[in-house]
Design a protein around this nucleic acid. Structure first.
Length: 945
RNA sequence: GGACCUUUAGCUCAGUUGGUUAGAGCGUUUCGUUGACAUCGAAAAGGUCACUGGUUCGAGUCCAGUAAGGUCCA
């Protein structure tokens, strides 16, 4: 057995084990009917992405779940991949082109897309390499990409199918237009930001009453050339007489515009009159429709003004034009005033510029299975952790709007619609919609637009498992791994991704064997087998593998179709000031630097320990450091074990247990095994409830405080005695074994290394080839060895710990902390003296005492009252009586307060009659203990004079 | 405007169904190179649990309201 070195060096060990795991194909997700499946589909990072602290947290949690599942004997699959991230990726490549003063238009669509692929080939997906450094145990052979040919075909097939089912339509509507990237966006991609700007009061002159005006307020004077009317509320008495009259447009091409009455106008806002610019405002557009007003679009796609805005404004950027328009209004007397104004403006999520409402033809999706999607979460088929996010989810579904799925980009899945050449594109009879295109391509032109990225990633959990190709599904183990067990993601993409995946699953997943019945340990049922076989050879036929449901789905169908059973929402990682970590702020540490400094295990342990469920996380590097320190502690405790004696048979739990000898147990043995069992149960529960940081804290406290600070320390005395040594080593082996198994999902590298070094591994096997026994199994194992934990002995350990602590405090109080030759005496009962003398060797060692003697009386020595008697520090020199009195008086005062409180509680008739007996009993015992201690303190003080 | 979250030690946070003297890590002070670990050990100081009211024998915990900070949706 190689010797364990003095300190833990993570670097080489991480490299070594990751390579070994890959070599042995430990991460492969295998269909195994004898095992329960556990599957996770990774939230695919952008192909342009690099590892951030958010990814570290998110993927560490997924790895914990997956590795724990393996240790529980499940067959685990963690399916990795990346997202082509339409806008983000196209922007990155365009930025590179711009450095050479080029645009994508210099290349044309085909060549530009080639460039993007080349970029992806060279630089994309770095993040997957980085995840390996973190220890992520993904099944890399299954790595998917949303632009892979197979995946792309699936995306296209879904478009065709949903079109055929009537969910997709083309329509001219107001969309969120991003002038930066020059594409339409979905509502979800628009971020509302408060903006401080100006609001302009502008007057419009009445055509047939010169010198009379109607006033409006607007933040966008540059759109006045697009005005087509003034609207007032029909019930607004101020304007009743004016309805039907006309006004002159104050700037831009001259025009007379009607004053119309519409109840959508807010009487309270400004003067109660509204300028109507149907091309540039959603409400205006709707009012325009009602009054059959023309639409005058004065903006170019890039946000500059066009010739319809008039010669003075044409060609100017919208913000420059705003100033210019204000000047023009001022010049011709139409500007009444400009006032500071704060309002919410929609910004493009990606380009971070204000979006423009713009009337364009786009492709829209009416969401399928909305009601079932609500039911899936409301009725608990899918569980959200923390539960409260389900409210946000349900609220969004209640108010759901159709999804604009077309994007005016080149990088993405090109929409599979062809228009008959020269024909009107707005008329469906001129469309061809199919996966492979028309048979006579020369007569058709394909739609230029691509799909929203999310319209591909919403298929992720099933499209990565071969769906809808029957053969591929069989190969990928679709029926075994779907629905996936858990999704781990951020709450910021509930709408973008989580909700949409649920609806996609409900609409598109076949009624496979899962729906028919039990998947585990039995062959697929007749029906399912038949379905798969009859479909073999059919490629991408969504309608055959997942026919449209004829009516609302039943609960059973929902259960089978949902893409995941649990959703764990992580918090957002913030810096010390509480700001979101972002590239532009430069406040995000590079996780790879942290791995270099603290090890992947240290980073994982640290980040998990500061990430409570459901709360945002304040990043602190010192917690990562403490993760590293914990690894070092684990390392050194193992080293101590190795140095303490020969290795025994550690090949299994049974083998270790067989070396444990209950008749030789002392109170410390009982106590540590009780804590081991309690910690195991604690971790079991925490992991079942996704309480990762609580699990880590339980393990930290157990290992550091209970095991290292106490058990290992008392071992030093026990290991000297021949009759206790073997049992003590066996107990250490048991504790270390269980600790490594419980810790492995959190800190996989060091636990694997120690598992091997301490001889727990079978030849050629890894730690994850073993089972992590749960609390119940561990308890059974205790029982099978005839071990019954003795709670009286366990309580004794508590008293001994306090006793040692008091002794140390007395020493420190008198500047003797470093001395190991101090003598103590104790006044105590026969019973407590027997405990003390039985544990004298350990206690003296821990307290740094030369000896502990029992006396009938002691005079003038510093003392402390403990549960095992009154402890005295023997001092050769005279005691500082004054200081000693002050110390004891302070303690007495505090205690007296507590006694009074407890007495008052017990004197309260209502308490005595209503409190449960256990509480009452506890209070009485507490009072008795406190009173005894108080009496002893009073006696001590009296003896000091 | 609607919804949600947070407020506990100097800092970051635990505190499960109400029940001993409210805990941890870091930081601070003092002491310590005792043959696992200075990436360590020991001791100590430090909290009217944001505020007000209510329910209760009993509230950090439950309820109502207020204040401050944050998030999402309009």
């Amino acid at each position: 057995m190689p010797e364990i070195t003095k300190s833990y060096e993570s670097r080489d060990i991480e490299k070594k084990w990751y390579a070994a795991w890959l070599e042995a194909k430990c991460f492969a997700g295998r269909v195994d009917a004898a095992r329960e499946p556990y599957s996770i589909a990774i939230p695919p990072p952008n192909v342009t992405g690099v590892l951030t602290m958010g990814h570290v947290l998110n993927n560490t949690i997924q790895d914990i779940l997956i590795r724990r599942a393996r240790l529980e004997g499940k067959s685990a699959l963690w399916l990795p991949g990346t997202d082509h991230a339409g806008i983000a990726t196209q922007t990155v490549v365009e930025r590179e082109l711009r450095k050479q003063k080029q645009t994508r238009h210099d290349y044309g669509r085909e060549k530009f897309v080639e460039k993007v692929w080349a970029w992806r080939q060279e630089k994309g997906g770095i993040i997957l390499e980085q995840l390996r450094r973190l220890g992520a145990s993904c099944d890399w052979d299954r790595t998917a990409f949303t632009m892979d040919p197979a995946y792309s075909q699936r995306v296209i097939a879904v478009f065709v199918e949903l079109f055929n089912r009537g969910y997709i339509y083309r329509g001219k509507r107001m969309v969120n237009w991003c002038p930066g990237t020059q594409t339409a966006l979905s509502d979800e991609e628009v971020i509302m930001k408060p903006v401080n700007g100006l609001i302009y009061r502008v007057r419009y002159e009445l055509t047939n009453a010169p010198g009379n005006f109607i006033e409006v307020k607007t933040t966008r004077p540059e759109t006045i050339p697009g005005d087509v009317a003034i609207a007032v509320h029909p019930d607004d008495p101020r304007y009743t007489a004016l309805i039907g009259q006309t006004v002159r447009r104050p700037i831009g091409p001259a025009a007379e515009m009607p004053i119309v009455a519409d109840s959508a106008v807010d009487k309270e806002f400004g003067s109660g009159a509204l300028k109507i610019t149907p091309a540039h405002d959603k409400t205006d557009y709707e009012i325009g429709l009602r009054h059959r007003l023309p639409v005058i679009d004065v903006l170019n796609p890039n946000g500059s003004l066009n010739e319809l805005a008039g010669p003075e404004l044409a060609g100017m950027d919208r913000f420059a034009a705003r100033k210019k328009a204000a000047e023009m209004l001022k010049a011709n007397g139409a500007l009444v005033a400009e006032e500071p104004y704060s309002n919410n403006v929609g910004y493009s999520e990606r380009a971070d510029v204000p979006i423009e409402p713009r009337l364009t033809e786009q492709w829209w999706l009416r969401y399928p299975k909305i009601e079932e999607a609500k039911a899936a979460v409301r009725d608990g088929h899918i569980k959200f952790y923390p539960e409260r996010w389900s409210k946000v989810y349900l609220h969004w579904l209640e108010n759901i709007q159709d999804w604009c799925i077309s994007r005016q980009l080149w990088w993405g899945h090109r929409i599979p619609v062809w228009y008959r050449k020269g024909a009107n594109r707005s008329e469906p009879q001129n469309w061809h919609v199919s996966v492979n295109g028309p048979a006579d391509p020369q007569d058709w032109e394909q739609e230029d637009d691509v799909l929203d990225t999310w319209a591909s990633s919403w298929l992720w959990p099933f499209a990565t498992l071969g769906w809808p190709d029957a053969e591929e599904m069989k190969r990928a183990g679709f029926n075994y791994f779907y629905p996936t067990t858990t999704l781990v993601t951020g709450p910021d993409i509930i709408f973008f991704w989580v909700a949409r995946m649920i609806m996609a699953g409900l609409e598109l997943v076949p009624n496979g064997s899962a729906e028919a019945g039990n998947r585990i340990g039995s062959k697929p049922t007749q029906g399912a087998t038949g379905a798969l076989e009859s479909l073999s050879g059919i490629r991408h036929s969504v309608s055959e593998i997942a026919p449209a449901a004829s009516g609302p789905l039943t609960a059973k169908q929902i259960e089978a179709r949902i893409p995941f059973r649990n959703v764990y929402f992580t918090g957002i990682i913030r810096d010390q000031q509480g700001r979101k970590m972002s590239k532009s702020l430069g406040n995000s540490p590079d996780p790879l630097d942290l791995i270099d400094a603290y090890g992947a295990d240290g980073l994982r342990f640290g980040i998990i320990s500061i990430a409570p469920q459901g709360q945002d996380i304040r990043f602190q590097e010192d917690r990562i450091e403490s993760g590293k320190n914990f690894c070092n502690k684990l390392w050194n405790a193992s080293r101590f074990r190795q140095m303490s004696g020969e290795a025994g048979d550690n090949s299994s739990l049974g083998a270790v247990m067989a070396r444990i000898d209950p008749p030789k147990f002392d109170s410390d043995d009982h106590a540590i095994l009780e804590r081991l069992l309690a910690t195991t149960r604690d971790v079991d529960r925490c992991l079942a409830e996704f309480e990762f940081s609580a699990a880590v804290q339980a393990l930290y406290g157990f290992f550091w405080n209970d095991f290292c600070d106490w058990y290992v320390e008392v071992s030093k005395a026990k290991l000297q005695a021949a009759d206790t040594k073997a049992n003590c080593l066996a107990i250490q082996d048991l504790v270390l074994r269980q600790a490594l198994l419980l810790l492995h999902p959190f800190i996989p590298f060091i636990t694997e290394e120690l598992w091997q070094l301490l001889g727990y591994a079978k030849p050629g096997a890894f730690i994850e080839d073993s089972r992590a026994e749960g609390g119940d199994e561990l308890a059974k194992s205790y029982a099978s060895r005839g071990l019954a934990l003795d709670h009286e002995q366990i309580a004794t350990v508590q008293n001994l710990k306090a006793f040692v602590s008091q002794a140390r405090a007395l020493k420190a109080e008198h500047n003797l902390a470093s001395r190991r030759d101090v003598k103590f005496s104790v006044i105590t009962s026969d019973r407590d003296w027997s405990i003390l003398s039985a544990n004298a060797a350990k206690a003296n060692r821990l307290a740094g005492a030369a000896e502990l003697v029992r006396r009938e009386s002691v005079e003038g020595a510093p003392a402390a009252v403990t549960a095992l008697g009154t402890l005295y520090l023997d001092l050769a020199s005279t005691v500082d009586v004054g200081a000693e009195k002050i110390r004891l008086t302070k303690e007495l005062e505090a205690l007296t307060k507590h006694v009074a409180g407890t007495e008052a509680r017990l004197a309260n008739q209502a308490f005595v009659s209503k409190a449960p007996p256990a509480v009452l009993e506890g209070a009485r015992k507490q009072l008795a203990d406190q009173q005894a201690k108080r009496a002893e303190l009073e006696r001590l003080l009296k003896s000091l004079g």
